[in-house]
């Protein structure tokens, strides 16, 4: 089954973390044939230290590695609220490991040797999810940076109220509303109310 991969997702980096050199090298080679942007790391710590884990992307994790296990890397990424999507690719695994991984939020779980096509399909899905997640995280961050007043105004804005109505509801001057509104729009990086609503929707989910 030969699906064409959309070019827009190529931009999202793919990370390969495996302590075995030939696996790293061959995986990179193969994924490169699919025009993916691949970076390899020899272990969990090296990856965490050098990759930008707050940007969307896809991580292909081996389970059994010296120093940091795949599951440990996964846990750290979760703790840091990383938008990265995790795909496990392990030489030995059992049902309980797979279930645990998926429950912890991994996108997929493969056993070596893995069929290239299937892996790339999974990466594509994972990339999409990662971008989504990234945007979600951004929106959340933005929301958390709002002041109380800004939050109140945001809520009223979502309802579709105009500045004057908001001023009346909150018993503040219109000018104040305008200032807050512009500030919160900037924080959310939204140009239109529609975008704001979209982002807010992501926060609420």
């Amino acid at each position: 089954m030969n699906k064409t991969i959309e070019k827009s997702f190529i931009s999202v980096p793919t990370y390969v973390v495996d302590d075995d050199e030939s696996v790293r090298d061959s995986l990179a080679f193969m994924l490169d044939s699919y025009d993916l942007n691949v970076t390899t790391y020899t272990g969990g710590q090296v990856f965490l230290d050098n990759a930008d884990i707050m940007q969307p992307g896809c991580v292909i994790l081996d389970s059994r590695m010296p120093e940091l296990r795949g599951q440990d890397v996964h846990a750290i990424l979760s703790r840091c609220h990383s938008p990265l999507s995790i795909i496990y690719l392990t030489g030995h695994g059992d049902i309980s490991m797979a279930v645990h991984a998926l429950k912890s939020g991994a996108v997929d779980f493969f056993q070596k040797p893995v069929d290239g096509e299937k892996l790339v399909q999974a990466i594509s899905i994972a990339a999409k999810k990662s971008i989504q997640r990234s945007e979600q995280l951004k929106a959340l961050l933005s929301y958390q940076s709002l002041t109380d007043r800004e939050r109140a105004i945001l809520l009223l804005l979502i309802k579709g109220k105009r500045n004057q109505q908001i001023a009346d509801d909150l018993c503040i001057a219109v000018r104040t509303v305008e200032v807050h509104r512009s500030s919160l729009m900037k924080k959310f990086n939204a140009k239109t109310i529609a975008e704001l609503v979209l982002q807010y929707g992501m926060v609420v989910n």
Partner: peptide, 9 residues
Amino acid sequence: TAILNYSQG
């Protein structure tokens, strides 16, 4: 795994 990856690539 490596052989499969290389050959598929």
